[in-house]
Simulated assay, not measured.
Amino acid sequence: MTLSANQLKTEIIYPDSDGKPMAESDPARDYLIYGVETLDIYFQDRNDVYVSGNLFIYYKKGIPSAVVAPDVFVVFGVEKKKRLSYKVWEEGGKVPNFVLEITSATTQENDEEDKPKKYSLLGVQEYFQYDPTGDYLNPQLKGSSLVEGKYQPITSNLLPDSVSSIHSEVLGLDLGLINGELRFFDPQTGKKLLSHKETEQARQQAEQARQDAIPRLLELGLSVEQVASALSLPVEAVRRFVQE
């Protein structure tokens, strides 16, 4: 029996996972999740922006070893959808426009030497690094922009409230450090971008503050209706408080 050429071909496998943990430490995992969530929320109304992290990006068809897995990355000009891995040739040749790596003891050398070379060759426009512990990077937050095939440092700014920040032209956002903690900021509003968890915490705090204000406003002589209007609460909610 003679096998055809197609039968002799071996299928090329592009694994979706290497079986290793997502991150080696709590800070690395926490900031990875924060970065992906906040950017995903920020670009949620745009169907041509894909945000992900710790996902295999295969950049050469037929060569599974040609792969990178940035901690956080953003691609403009591709469909927003769930992916098990990202294959550049299936995405119209689009590579990440922005990459953020969370640096640690085991990734420092790779983040500082190997990855910048790969990312620059791929054409990643901006490459940022952040060290949650402050032990491996100096400064703790770095940003670089691709200029004529090489990364050039992006100048950081010290804001009046002692927040050190670096502007990302690609994202249209500022990456800043508050007491060493990485946060994204909208430069137009100055507001910090929140993760899903932080958004819920802020909602609960605001709700509690409104509840706490009810008795004070009632003591000032405001009616139930006036209190409800002032605190943007349903009238029934204020009445239930009075009845309790």
Rank of each mutant, 00 (worst) to 15 (best):
T2H: 14
T10E: 14
T10S: 11
P15W: 04
D16V: 15
D16I: 13
V36K: 01
T38P: 04
T38M: 03
Y42T: 05
Y42N: 02
Q44Y: 07
D45K: 09
V49G: 04
V49C: 07
S52Q: 05
Y58A: 07
S65Y: 14
V68P: 02
D71M: 03
F73V: 00
V74I: 11
K80D: 14
V88Q: 00
V88C: 07
E90N: 13
E91W: 04
V95D: 00
T107Q: 03
E109W: 11
D114G: 03
P116G: 01
L121G: 10
V124Y: 02
P132R: 01
P132F: 02
T133F: 04
Y136C: 05
K142V: 09
E148G: 05
E148I: 02
G149D: 10
Y151R: 00
P153L: 09
P153Y: 02
V163Q: 09
S164P: 04
I166Q: 03
L171M: 09
L171E: 12
D174C: 09
L182W: 01
P187S: 11
Q188V: 12
G190S: 04
K191Q: 15
H196S: 08
H196W: 11
K197L: 15
E200K: 06
A202H: 12
A206Q: 14
Q208T: 09
R210C: 10
D212K: 11
A213N: 00
L217Y: 13
L218W: 05
G221A: 07
Q226L: 07
S229Q: 14
A230W: 03
L231F: 11
F241H: 11
V242Y: 03
E244I: 11
